[in-house]
Design a protein around this nucleic acid. Structure first.
Lengths: 215, 215
DNA sequence: GCCGAACCGTAACGTACGGTACGGTTATCA
DNA sequence: TGATAACCGTACCGTACGTTACGGTTCGGC
């Protein structure tokens, strides 16, 4: 059993190490070698191996650590009227756009994609579980509450979520992963989120409210 | 100038080498090393370096070669009625889904993503240019023809294309890149393409035709 | 104050792999 | 037939990096 590989919460010192990994990853100036991590974190390589087992264990712990930092709270569903639903969806959309366009997410996803290429990859699965699937599990209850309140109409909640996902993300993630210098300013994110939610309501809303089709 | 790095068409022997690279990449059993390529292609490493300059040149040539094989013909736009537009869009959508879920595309995109991480990356740009942007340049004339024919209504063709892209691809590309064992049978691709185009018409169509909302 | 555990810094090891060199073979052409 | 070029196979070189080993230091417990 690799030490601390699946422990729930790293110690503070370990968190500092994982933050060093994230820093190195985001800066991208330097290859992410064990030596570089040890130097940046001011720890010995022996300690790295003792704590995380091997390089993959360190990467997995880093992904989990980042995920634990990003995880946003769930949404309360009391008084779910059309405006509240719309606001929640826009918040989801804006948050998702912010995450996938962040340098940290890009760097981690790149590592995970590269790792998925070389067989024995739990990294890709971990990223998927904490990204795509985590947001799905958090969003689907909201969609179903919207349907129960008569605000949305759909049959398959999974398919509906995937469509929401597509409307929001569009080509952003593949472009940034492939190095497109795409910049999403906060204002642009808000605008894109609103537009995506508008379109989502056009597809799945029950017309209980006039659609604003701004461009 | 690296030899044959940007030559338009590789010789037959060179094509065989590039196909060997694709085979190795798709199989994924083995690391894509120059030695492995030489062995698979029954050529010497010296020849590889002579023809492609270095490892990156070989990868770039491989990406270009694959792109040249995938490139489908453009769509004639005579007699563009609603059905013809719909058929063309469905063909685009189905073809795109088929491409991004193919093992070859997945492998090449993974390489390009990993390459984009380590600075000096034209690979990612090449993949983007031959994937996301190539299909955009081929689809946008069709969208504009549809608008000119009064079948579609939109302001920004780029934004409209990106929405089409999102409706079609949804979460497929990121999932397969991260190793999700997502299988898209041809029938499922056809169904997803149809549904995406239905939704696209719901958003951008001029209601000249009843929408079929199957599921 | 002493002991052991934990940890830092660094050196060292082994290997994988990009890139080069070279001898041997085929093929083209005069 | 002899010469030159292209190419195959393989050996070789240098380096980067994952992993291990080890001496020195700090620190909590007795």
């Amino acid at each position: 059993m690799t030490p601390a590989a699946e422990k729930e919460t790293p110690t503070e010192r370990q968190q500092a190490v994982l933050d060093a990994v994230l820093d190195l990853l985001v800066e991208g100036e330097e290859q992410l070698t064990m030596t570089a991590v040890a130097r940046r974190a001011s720890c010995s390589k022996e300690t790295l191996y003792k704590w995380f087992g091997d390089r993959d264990g360190l990467l997995a712990a880093t992904v989990r650590w980042q995920a634990s930092k990003v995880r946003a709270g769930n949404y309360d569903r009391q008084k779910l009227d059309a405006d509240a639903l719309r606001d929640s969806l826009e918040a989801f959309a804006a948050n998702w756009l912010k995450v996938i366009s962040s340098r940290t997410s890009i760097a981690l996803n790149r590592v995970a994609v590269g790792h998925a290429a070389s067989g024995k990859s739990n990294l890709g699965a971990i990223v998927l579980a904490n990204g795509r699937f985590a947001i799905g599990e958090r969003l689907k209850p909201l969609l179903e509450a919207g349907r129960a309140a008569g605000l949305l109409a759909f049959d398959d909640v999974e398919d509906t979520f995937r469509t929401f996902f597509g409307l929001v993300g569009r080509d952003v993630q593949i472009r940034v992963l492939l190095g497109d210098p795409l910049k999403l300013a906060p204002a642009a994110i808000e605008q894109e989120a609103k537009r995506a939610v508008d379109r989502f309501f056009t597809l799945f809303g029950t017309a209980g409210r006039p659609k604003i089709r701004s461009v």
